[in-house]
Amino acid sequence: MPSIYAALDLGTNNCRLLIARPLRDTGRTDSFRVVEAFSRIVRLGEGLTNTGALSEAAMARTLVALKICSEKMARRGVTMARAVATEACRRAANGPEFLHEVKASTGIGFDIITTAEEARLALSGCGPLLEPQHEQAVVFDIGGGSTEVMWARLHRDRRPEVLDWISLPFGVVNLTERHGAGHIDSGSYGAMIDEVAAHLAPFEARHGLNAAMRAGKVQVLGTSGTVTTLAGVLLGLPRYERRHVDGCWLEFPAVIEQSRRLAGMPVPDRAKHPCIGEERADLVVAGCAILEALHRFWPAPRLRVADRGVREGVLLEMMRGRS
């Protein structure tokens, strides 16, 4: 029987599991067949900005989701697995203690990865969507507690190389907790954009990517719930479907226009859209603000959307024998 791999990504907002089997007959190292996927919004980092610790309610929600993941992995006969935890567990004073409890309750052992490894894994997972005719790429991953921005070069074998990266201390959860659910009329949406842009400015000043982008040499690719949600809205999907979203191209100005429309809506109206729903309605505008700050520096005509990232990167590296 072929090996069955599992990758588990525990973020500030989401818990994501991917179980897959490598496609060895293709001769490629970026191919696998998904056996099962699971994703749940757990808001593990809820309240972390104010308290510095994971709350009892957030840990309880997350533990329920991780028990489901453990059951799925056992049922599928997983032979090799890696579980990684990101910003919430990095920042929380009780993060290691919580993961020790997770190990005891579910048998899943987590690695708390650095922002550098998180960026590298996200880029590895998204690599197959980078087009070889572009010399460089800006790839960003808007998370719940942080946002990783990578400047990459694509080699002939299509593997991307990180030239530089930055981890911004902003994600949809902590930015929402500081500014509220975001609204144009109140000024909170603009304040979010300005705060994120101030942290991006030194990165752009160091590399001058704006000029290369205007010359058509740089592709922009985004991976996060924010960009996939916006894609679902702009594509007019009656419900979210990954097959329509992953790899799609969006006109970047249309993305910004849609972001501002959402920022002009009350939260209950946002929740009515089937690709947003109640779970994302209060968080999505913070992601839009991060996206608009990125566009301020790198106004590419088009944005490619990836419904893939860290967990796919973990899978690929295990299959290549790096983990």
Rank of each mutant, 00 (worst) to 15 (best):
I166Q: 09
I184G: 11
V196K: 07
M265P: 10
S188F: 08
A211N: 06
R206H: 12
G225E: 00
D269H: 12
L221D: 08
E195V: 01
L209F: 08
I256H: 07
F170G: 10
A231I: 00
P202H: 09
R214I: 06
H183W: 13
E251H: 08
H244T: 08
I184H: 12
R260N: 02
V173H: 07
G180D: 08
Y240L: 01
E195T: 13
G264L: 03
T176E: 07
R214K: 13
D164F: 02
G180E: 09
A212V: 12
S188T: 15
R242A: 14
E161N: 03
V162E: 13
G190C: 03
A211R: 11
R239N: 07
H273M: 02
E204F: 12
L209Y: 10
N174E: 09
Y189L: 05
E161I: 09
H207D: 00
L230C: 03
A211I: 09
L234R: 10
Q258P: 12
T176K: 11
S167W: 04
R261S: 00
R260P: 00
H244R: 14
R239G: 01
R239C: 06
T223V: 13
R243K: 13
N210D: 15
H207C: 00
P169Q: 09
S186H: 12
G264N: 04
P266H: 03
E257K: 02
V245A: 07
R260V: 00
V245T: 05
L230E: 03
E251V: 11
L168A: 07
